[in-house]
Computed example of a mutant assay.
Amino acid sequence: MTITAADLVHLQRCVELAREALEDGDEPFGSVLVSGDDAVLFEDRNRVKDGDATRHPEFEISRWSAENLTPDERAAATVYTSGEHCPMCAASHGWVGLGRIVYAASSGQLVSWLEEWGVPPAPVAALPISRVVPGAVVEGPVESFTEIVRSLHRARFPHLR
């Protein structure tokens, strides 16, 4: 895995966005879209608390990219995210032809944490991005973010303390 200093900066922003989501009563996920020349193009955080389970930041990035970038620009871009894409988001990424994905924590890690805390599983299976989008360029998890992302997810369940 070749994680650069710039990758770490963008992942840190994803974690900040995840914290913002959590502070707003939402699930702690944040994502940033960066162009091939390292310009931040779009960023968002989870917005599912009001009942629309498709309001994941990675899905919003796919929508925004399809409307605002050429196919070549999408392919050259990198999506950074605090957590590995769910199958819905991975599929949207593949369908619009986005480039590299870098995530702080894997879906496998999240599933493990939730099981440890006694949280019921999600209604959709957690699959690695590469199972949904064969050939995707994916890097993660990034170990230096494991504990902070874990703590954000743990904070979603104060009743389990």
Rank of each mutant, 00 (worst) to 15 (best):
S107G: 15
A39N: 14
E84D: 05
R55T: 02
I101L: 07
V96T: 14
P128R: 07
G36W: 04
T54I: 11
I101V: 13
R63K: 15
V111Y: 05
A125T: 10
W113K: 01
P123K: 06
E84C: 00
L110N: 11
L127V: 06
S130H: 05
A76S: 13
Y103D: 00
H56M: 04
A105D: 08
T81N: 04
V138H: 08
A66D: 15
R100H: 11
A104I: 07
G36D: 11
G51P: 12
P128S: 06
E60R: 11
L41P: 07
G51V: 12
P141A: 06
E84Y: 03
P87M: 03
W64R: 01
F42M: 13
S35W: 07
V137W: 07
E58Q: 08
E116P: 02
E67W: 13
G83M: 14
V40F: 07
V138F: 10
D72I: 00
C89S: 11
R63N: 11
P123F: 03
A125N: 15
E84R: 01
V48F: 12
G108T: 06
D38Q: 15
V96K: 03
V132D: 03
D38P: 10
E58D: 09
H85F: 02
A90G: 12
E84I: 00
V102E: 00
W95P: 03
P141S: 10
A122Y: 10
T70Q: 13
L69P: 00
R47I: 04
G36M: 09
A66V: 14
D52A: 05
V96A: 11
H93M: 03
V96N: 11
Y80F: 12
P123Q: 09
E115L: 05
A125H: 14
S82M: 11
E116C: 00
A125Y: 12
A104L: 04
A126Q: 09
T78C: 12
A104D: 06
I101S: 03
V124E: 15
A104S: 10
E58H: 01
W113F: 03
P87K: 05
C86T: 00
D44T: 06
S92P: 10
D52W: 14
E116F: 03
A105R: 07
E115P: 02
V40T: 13
C86K: 00
D52G: 10
E43N: 01
G99I: 04
P134G: 10
